[in-house]
């Protein structure tokens, strides 16, 4: 084995160590956050009965309503506190009124991603006058969970948006 090759291996080992330590640090992160896009489909059974089922978003065209679900699972042994989920309304989509859910959370909205407020405090300037912002003008959603998220527990937030 040549000198040069040995040096290379040593360097590679160092690099591997560095990567390992990053992975360890990542493991220390206590929340696994997942985002999911679904649509509702009407299912007709053999007897003609109808039911609504959620499937992975497909056959989405302008006007279709998509359900976005975000789940936060506490993967540590300690509780997580002040869990706050932020989600911008996806580009080309408009938030559907009264579609935001998140059990145990206070929900606020923002037009610019900076100032978050309850719906009645969001205003838009139009023709020189202030008016209340419409739901489809909200660009960001924030869920602030009031109670700590126990180890192993999952918090769910969701909203519906229509494709422009």
């Amino acid at each position: 084995m040549s000198q040069g090759k040995l040096k290379f291996i040593a360097a590679a080992a160092l690099l591997a160590f560095a990567v390992d330590s990053q992975v360890l640090a990542a493991d220390a992160r206590c929340i696994s956050l997942k985002s999911m896009a679904e649509v509702e489909r009407e299912i007709v059974d053999d007897k003609g009965g109808k039911s609504v089922k959620r499937v992975a978003a497909s056959k989405v065209v302008p006007g279709t309503e998509v359900i976005w679900t975000i789940t936060a699972e506490n993967t540590c042994k300690q509780a997580s506190e002040n869990v706050t989920i932020n989600n911008p309304v996806p580009a080309h989509m408009q938030l559907v009124a009264n579609s935001v859910t998140g059990a145990g959370s206070d929900v606020t909205y923002s037009l610019d991603g900076k100032a978050f407020a309850k719906p009645d405090q969001l205003t838009v300037k139009e023709n020189g006058a202030d008016r209340k912002a419409r739901t489809n003008e909200y660009k960001h959603i924030r869920w602030e969970f009031k109670n700590p998220l126990p180890a192993g527990a999952t918090a769910t937030a969701s909203f519906r948006a229509v494709l422009e």
Binding site: C30, I31, L33, S35, A37, V60, V61, P62, V66, W68, I70, A72, C76, Q78, A79, S80, E81, N82, V83, T84, I85, N86, N87, P88, P90, A91, H92, M93, L149, A157, L163, E164
Partner: peptide, 17 residues
């Protein structure tokens, strides 16, 4: 929105331990 456009969503969580 034009056909073929990919619509994406990424959420962020902040928390304390």
């Amino acid at each position: 929105t034009a056909a073929g456009t990919t619509i994406q969503n990424t959420a962020t969580v902040n928390y304390q331990v």
